[in-house]
């Protein structure tokens, strides 16, 4: 474990050195990312000039909703910073045969392939998310209880784990397809569902979608459960949701591991 941490530390250091080498590119990426996030926040502020709450009696008034958005920003920025660049590069490694060099290293290939690139510009969104969360929680009528603060980091980790599992399974599809340039697009469409409160998925179309995105592809648990834990009272049902999210995260990691290993066994390499 310590060895893997040390190696990850080397990856982090190398990526930082590279980002500092191309400073202008790094700053531009940070600004692009922050600009996109600012536009989203402005849009939500605009929505709250028309309505005090999203849905009736859902509890998603302005500050809790911004705590929800902040939670999403933190989880997404972790995934974007730690896993997404490596997953995107995997498609290129498979196409060009660069994966060969990874498979001969005495190291877990999934670790090496999913964590060898770190995108520091994505951390900017995470920092904004933390500030937004602090601002929103500071304006709550009742501050979150200690239990909520205790489970919140755990649920953030579960959210990251579920998204990581999805990323790695999508990336593993590259090994079968040989080329998967739509990885990022598909990821964006899929995770788009997790960016909104689960309550909006109701009615004849919404309810089946909510069931699908909770029990089959558990992306609705990613932001909703941690955000609900910090913004609303931890009742019995909330604890069930916490337990369910932990189980879903473990199951997602196990399934993604199996899928990835099986994909690697079918790797054909590319012609030299």
């Amino acid at each position: 474990m310590l060895r893997y941490l040390t190696i990850f530390g080397t990856f982090v250091r190398a990526c930082l050195v590279r980002d500092l080498t191309f400073r202008a590119n790094f700053i531009l990426e940070c600004l692009t990312s922050l600009g996109w996030m600012s536009m989203n926040l402005a849009f939500y502020l605009l929505v709250f000039t028309f309505t005090p709450e999203i849905g009736r009696d859902t509890g998603w008034t302005r500050e809790p909703f911004f705590a929800f958005v902040a939670t999403g920003m933190i989880i997404n920025s972790i995934v974007q910073a730690l896993f997404m660049p490596s997953a995107e590069e995997l498609t290129e490694l498979v196409r060009t045969g660069g994966l060969d060099a990874v498979l001969v290293k005495p190291l877990d290939a999934q670790f090496l392939l999913s964590m060898h690139r770190v995108d520091f510009s994505a951390c900017a969104n995470g920092l904004v998310g933390v500030c937004l969360l602090a601002w929103a929680v500071g304006r709550f009528e009742t501050p979150p209880p200690a239990a909520a603060w205790a489970v919140y980091p755990l649920l953030l980790l579960c959210g990251v784990a579920i998204l990581y599992a999805l990323v790695i399974m999508l990336a593993a599809a590259t090994i079968h397809l040989g080329r998967n340039q739509s990885l990022y697009d598909f990821w964006f469409y899929l995770t788009n569902f997790s960016r909104y409160p689960a309550e909006i998925y109701s009615g004849p179309w919404g309810s089946p979608l909510r069931a699908l995105c909770t029990f089959v592809i558990p992306i609705l648990l990613v932001v909703n459960v941690p955000a609900r834990a910090i913004t609303q009272p931890l009742t019995g049902a909330a604890w069930w949701a916490v337990g369910g999210t932990v189980c879903a995260a473990v199951a997602a990691l196990v399934v993604s591991r199996v899928v990835f290993q099986r994909s690697l066994a079918r790797y054909r390499s590319a012609s030299s």
Binding site: A14, V17, G98, D100, A101
Partner: peptide
Amino acid sequence: ADDFRRRFALVMGQRNQLWWDL
């Protein structure tokens, strides 16, 4: 097996295994 992979090396003339920008 890791024990095997620690004991051999592969060099491919048409592939770069070093970090490109570093």
